[in-house]
Design a protein around this nucleic acid. Structure first.
Lengths: 212, 212
DNA sequence: CGTTAGTTTGAGGTAAGTCAACTCTAGTGG
DNA sequence: CCACTAGAGTTGACTTACCTCAAACTAACG
């Protein structure tokens, strides 16, 4: 493979295919158990990662112990790219998870593939800023369910990968408030809950209207 | 200037100098008055921008009218880079502001310069997620003052570019709550306020301790 | 010096947090 | 296959931090 594969006719480099990221395909899959650390705050940053199966939470904790989950990463998602030498967040597997990683030393060959990856993460972070900065608890939970539905491929029935505490720490709420919001959506016949992880969106439109 | 300037020995491409971004130097400075739109939600995204002087707010508004300022950009900062074809946020000048812009068509020449720019914006967004997701009003205002102090070059005396409403919409608070927090910091002799924009950090350490 | 937008202060209301009890459920072993 | 258990989730009562509404104050402009 050539080190650089520039599509000269390409007008929008941000939309270039991630073909250059193919280097990762040859890498072995590392398996992680539920809760296992992928990288930790303060460590030297040496790798970029891609989720093969399972899920990952990236989070930061304040000295006071409060935790904010910055993002969840599901199958196919890239994470762990940063400017700084040391990690300022931590990443853990949620459930049994497979990860491929490539060394940062190798990333100079795939810049044009990495840019859209980072832009996507950035866009996701901005979306999330709006949710946690300006939406009510019910709106946040509604937005979260829609986001998870989208990531699951747009199906109305899907499973949440994470426990309530992760949802709470992602949305800047408490588990009790998340639970109350879910109950309210259930009682309003907007969603149905199956067991502790299963979700079915019954009234998609109603859920969307909650996020305005 | 060569179209591509790869530093082959460079081990950390994210830390490459932004020399490639020099294309922007030859561009003319566009002047904007206070509140003038630079780009708006829904528009086709055609340019990337760099602040020459003054300041910029990038924000999104919910259908319900609530506004979240995603980031402030000061002299030297780049903004406006995205994956999508259309803007999902808006950008406005704060006070008299000078902006240089380059067309996205030209960005294919400066990928390796753009990556650190986006990573910096991303890092800033993540930091902000933690603040608005998990900190109290007083802690948010303290964090904001430290951030502005840093951006002003680490001086303890500096001027806020923006009115209280912008601070509130950045921190996910109301102007009243921002005002009360500032008053509290003033009464605790942690800061001094001069007029409506001037800030002096008297007790830097105390301010930092508030953000734990 | 007056005007007006921006900011501060105050009083009262409310959404979300806290603490505690209860319930479910998924996993384990009899 | 069912009973038991421990962890996770839900519900309720109460508290609190922030919001809302309203009024007073400042300061920056002509």
């Amino acid at each position: 493979m050539p080190a650089f594969e520039f599509s000269q006719g390409q007008m929008k480099p941000m939309l270039v295919t991630s073909a250059a990221l193919g280097v990762v395909e040859s890498k072995p899959v590392s398996n992680f158990v539920d809760g296992q650390s992928i990288y930790s705050d303060g460590e030297r940053a040496g790798q970029v990662y891609r989720v093969e199966f399972g899920a990952v939470r990236v989070y930061r904790v304040l000295a006071s112990g409060r935790r904010q989950i910055l993002d969840f990463h599901l199958g196919g998602n890239w994470f762990g790219l940063q400017n700084e030498d040391f990690r300022r967040s931590s990443a853990e597997a949620i459930g049994t998870t497979g990860i491929k990683s490539i060394s940062l030393r190798e990333t100079r060959y795939i810049w044009q593939g990495l840019l859209p990856v980072v832009l996507e993460n950035f866009s996701s972070a901005q979306e999330h800023q709006l949710v946690i900065g300006r939406q009510s608890a019910l709106e946040r939970v509604a937005a979260f369910l829609l986001e998870m539905s989208n990531r699951a491929g747009g199906t109305c029935r899907f499973d949440l990968f994470m426990p309530r505490i992760d949802i709470a720490d992602y949305l800047g709420l408490t588990i009790e408030t998340v639970s109350r919001a879910l109950t309210k959506l259930k009682n309003g016949s907007i969603i149905r809950l199956q067991g502790t992880r299963g979700v079915e969106i019954v009234n998609y439109r109603a859920l969307q209207n909650l996020c305005l």
